[in-house]
Write a protein that binds this DNA or RNA. Sequence first.
DNA 1: ATAATTCCTATCGGCTTAATAGGAATATAT
DNA 2: ATATATTCCTATTAAGCCGATAGGAATTAT
Lengths: 133, 133
Amino acid sequence: MFPVSSRSQYGIRALVYLARKQGHVATASEISSREGISAKYLEGILTTLSSAGLVLGERGKNGGMRLARDTSEITMRDIVQALDGQVRPVACVDAAGDCSQGGACLPRRFWLGLKSVIDEYLESHTLKDVSES
Amino acid sequence: MFPVSSRSQYGIRALVYLARKQGHVATASEISSREGISAKYLEGILTTLSSAGLVLGERGKNGGMRLARDTSEITMRDIVQALDGQVRPVACVDAAGDCSQGGACLPRRFWLGLKSVIDEYLESHTLKDVSES
DNA sequence: ATAATTCCTATCGGCTTAATAGGAATATAT
DNA sequence: ATATATTCCTATTAAGCCGATAGGAATTAT
């Protein structure tokens, strides 16, 4: 129950690895071999993190990836949201809010509360916390 | 991210329905038609809830399902655990604890904390809360 | 007996996801 | 310039999960 995708888990490990580099670059293949993650798969994950603005990708020879900002400025919510989207326990807890039961749906509040506690936990932990703990 | 299975969602709706019955029986087909849930599928869900001791199944004619205990004595964690197993964001956060990285796995604490906040939220909300909110 | 119900087992089709493949775009080094 | 190393883009595959269905066995009231 409440499984976290491999994508997010890999992404976090990669970012922890980059955090240790203190802002210096590391290539996708370096991270993949050190962390034991499929090279091509991780490559795509890092590209996604780059689109999300969490890392900077530098192309070409001697290129690689580096953190886009300080580890204390990257929350765990930023990461999992970039890789697996918003926290959404059930379909009806988003902007659309198209619960088939309308306002009469009793469990809705309960699910909204669950979304809140998860979001708050993720948001209150930064990459700095995780990479130094 | 963090989707809750249809099984758990259906199960909760069925239990809310039963809660309204104040301990009287309702058949699986009655609940399925009232709640718009696939009959046979819901049947299996209720059987599972029965094995878990949350409802009592009475076989035979005039049989049906009733809550096994008071709504305030059934936590939301009881329900989702019965239907979808333990809260387990990542594989390594259970008794086995076979993290390939061993004690050197940095994100482990983070995931354990996430598991805790989810467990605590689920445990602190009962069927009574949800069915009366 | 008959009817109505829970309970058990097996199966199917569709969706998601981890993983792979091939290459295009880009930048550096020589 | 050319070769090399890297990110970035698009498609495809293989496997697993999950919602749903099917058919019945066991049980109980009428």
